[in-house]
Design a protein around this nucleic acid. Sequence first.
DNA 1: TGTAACCAATCGTTGAACAATCCTTCAAGA
DNA 2: TCTTGAAGGATTGTTCAACGATTGGTTACA
Lengths: 240, 240
Amino acid sequence: MNSAGPVSAVLQSERGRLLRSGTAERVTEILREQITGGLLAPGVRLSEESIGEALGVSRNTLREAFRLLSHEGLVVHELHRGVFVRVLTAADVTDLYLLRQVVEGAAVRSAARGELGTLIATVEQAEAAAAGRRWGEVATFDLQFHQELVSLAGSPRLDSLMRRLLAELRLAFHVMSHPGEFHEPYLLRNRSLVSLLQAGRADEAAAELRAYLEDAEAQLLNAFQQRDAGASTERKPQHR
Amino acid sequence: MNSAGPVSAVLQSERGRLLRSGTAERVTEILREQITGGLLAPGVRLSEESIGEALGVSRNTLREAFRLLSHEGLVVHELHRGVFVRVLTAADVTDLYLLRQVVEGAAVRSAARGELGTLIATVEQAEAAAAGRRWGEVATFDLQFHQELVSLAGSPRLDSLMRRLLAELRLAFHVMSHPGEFHEPYLLRNRSLVSLLQAGRADEAAAELRAYLEDAEAQLLNAFQQRDAGASTERKPQHR
DNA sequence: TGTAACCAATCGTTGAACAATCCTTCAAGA
DNA sequence: TCTTGAAGGATTGTTCAACGATTGGTTACA
C-alpha cells in the first residue's frame, strides 16, 4: 500500500499516453485534422478504397475510423453511398452557437475562482500571431482560448463536448473567404473577457461573452447567406 | 408544390428509419439497450467472439459497434484487452450532474414559450406507472420527461447530448439496490416543475430544477459511497 | 423524349489468416 | 514465502480476399 506514493501518481497520469494507440484511432486523428484544417473540403466523398490505400490501412480499420468521425458529426455516413465531409447549413451554425452559449456561459460562471494563467498566455500568443499577420495561428489560438475557458469548469465531459463543438465549427469557418482574419477582431474581446474575470466581475463577463457569441454567429450566418445565394446561380452540386 | 403538405412532412420524419440500416448500427442499438437496461452489468467484459456469435455478426461488424459505444462512453476500450461495460466512479456522477445542470438549466430557461403538452402527458404516464408500482416504467418515463424537457429547446445537438447523458446515467443507477423506486419521489417534483413552467414562472422553475438535480445527485453519491465502502471488504474484482 | 434494361463502381458484411499482446500457469531462485 | 522469469494458450489488432447488395450512369429501344 505504501507504493501508492507520489511516484505512482506521476506514472498514473502518463498511463494514458502508453495505452492510447490503435491504428483506427490514429487514422481518426489524421482525418479529423485534414477535415477541420480544410484540406478535405465539405461535400467531398471519402472513398474507402482510395483513402485506405493512401494511408496504408485496410478497409476494415478505415471503417472503424469513419464511424467515429460520423459520430462526431464531421462526416455524414449514407448507406451504400459512402461517407462525405459534412456540409453545414445555416441551421447548424445557429445550433452550434446555441450550444456555445450554453457551454461557455456555464464555464464563465464557474471560472471566477479559476486559474487564469493559461488563458492569459493563450490570449497573448494570439495577439502576437495577429501582429505577425499569421492568420492561421490566430484562428488556432482563438479557438484554443475558448477551449481553455471551458476547461476551467473542470469537467471532463464538458471539455470533450467543447472539443467536438469547435471541430464542427471549423467546418463552418471554411465557407468564408478569409477564415483566418475572421478571428482577429475577437482577440480584443477575449482580452477584455479575461480582464473582467480577473476582476471577479462574473456577470459582466457573462454578458460580454454572450454578445461576443451573438456577433460571431451573425457574422457567420451572413457568410452562409452569401454562399447559399450564390449556390442557386452557380452550378456547384455538392452531391446528390 | 402542393404535395409538400402534412403527408410529406410525416413521411420525411420517417425517412430516417428507412434509410438507417446497417448491421453495425443495429448491433449498437441492441448492445446499448442491454447495457443501459442493466443486463450487461458494469465491469463485464464484452468478448468479440462470444458476442459476435450470439448476435450472428462477424467480428469486424461487431468492432464497429464497439467503437460507437466506446465513443458514447458506455463501454471502455482497452487496447489488446477488449471492451468492458463502463464502471462509473463517484467523480463521473458528479460530472454527469454538472452537465445536467447546464443542459437542463438552459432548456428550462427556453421552455417558457414552449409546447408543454407532451411533457404533461409523460408526467401522467409516470404517475400512472407509479400508482401501479411498475417501477421499471417509472424510471423510463422519468428519464423521458427530462429528455422531452431538453427537446423543448429545439436544438438537435442538445437533444443528442442529453440522450447520451441519460444513457450514461443509467449506468450509475444500477449501483443502487432498487433503481426503479429511486425515481418515484421525483415525480411530484416533475409535476410541480411543469406547473411552474405553465404559469410562466421561469425563474422559480429553474430554481426547482436546480434543487431537484442537487438532491438526486446527493442520493446517487450516497449509494456510490456505500458501494465503494463495501468493495474494500468484499472481494469483487471488476477486472484487472 | 422518355423509359427500361444493363453495367461498372462502391459499399456492406463475412470469413479466414497471422502477428502482437495479454493473462495464466508453473517452475526456479532468493 | 515471496519474487522473478519463462512457456503456453487465449484474445485482440489488422489485413486480405471474396461475394451479395445498392447506387449512379449509360445504352438501347419504343
